[in-house]
Design a protein around this nucleic acid. Sequence first.
DNA 1: AAAGAAACTTTAAAAATGCAAGTCACTAGG
DNA 2: CCTAGTGACTTGCATTTTTAAAGTTTCTTT
Lengths: 125, 125
Amino acid sequence: MTQSLKAGQHQFRSGCSISRTLELFGDKWTLLVVRDLMWHGKHTFQELQRSDEHVPSNILSQRLRRLMDWGLLSRTPYQDRPVRYAYHLTGKGRSLEPVLLQVMAWGHENLDGGLYDPETGVSKS
Amino acid sequence: MTQSLKAGQHQFRSGCSISRTLELFGDKWTLLVVRDLMWHGKHTFQELQRSDEHVPSNILSQRLRRLMDWGLLSRTPYQDRPVRYAYHLTGKGRSLEPVLLQVMAWGHENLDGGLYDPETGVSKS
DNA sequence: AAAGAAACTTTAAAAATGCAAGTCACTAGG
DNA sequence: CCTAGTGACTTGCATTTTTAAAGTTTCTTT
């Protein structure tokens, strides 16, 4: 039994937009799923599962359901017999692109290079 | 003993800048601490603990340590007898502002009603 | 001496995560 | 028909993280 909170039934911790956004994306996987759907042309469960970061299948399943519940993506069958589904971002989902770009830019400028040494302040791979 | 993973010893899951950023900020609290330091003029442990979202004290403690380990903020004594500390963002920490603004904008437009103005510090639902 | 405050830490329970294995609906081959 | 294989999940269970509440430490004030 899963508890997939629909957006309409969710009680936010506070009125802050940052806090609210974190209640949806405040984990290590959700934005990666959005990244792969948005830029990497991955649309099936299997393709999404085979990202560089190796998201566990149960986590992926739960995240896809949550994103659908929130109206950020939709699922459509791409074949019958047997039925197989493809996931696509909705307009709301695609509106996350500026967020993703900003996060990527920050990471690129500050976390690039594999390992970061706080002693020297030097990044190294 | 608590495990405060120093940045230098941290092994990233992948080379993706988004994934890397999520390994630091992929939780429900870290960005809120940054928000309060950046815009709300909160600098002591107690002030940070009294946010609208009520971060548990052990989580706050751990997050502050992590952010310091990563060089995003620093701690300085603001009084002796007894010694009390104030936390401040470093330049690197302040460089998160565009990310925060983008996240806030998205939440404001999509998560219904969570108004927050960094200028006035006003939030209302 | 007693009470209070700030900044944490500890403890135990609850929830989330990660890994491996299993299920279900079919299809293709022998 | 029987077996193997594929895609999309689900289940079980051990591990990790989060949470709420209570406790600790240091020093000041009454």
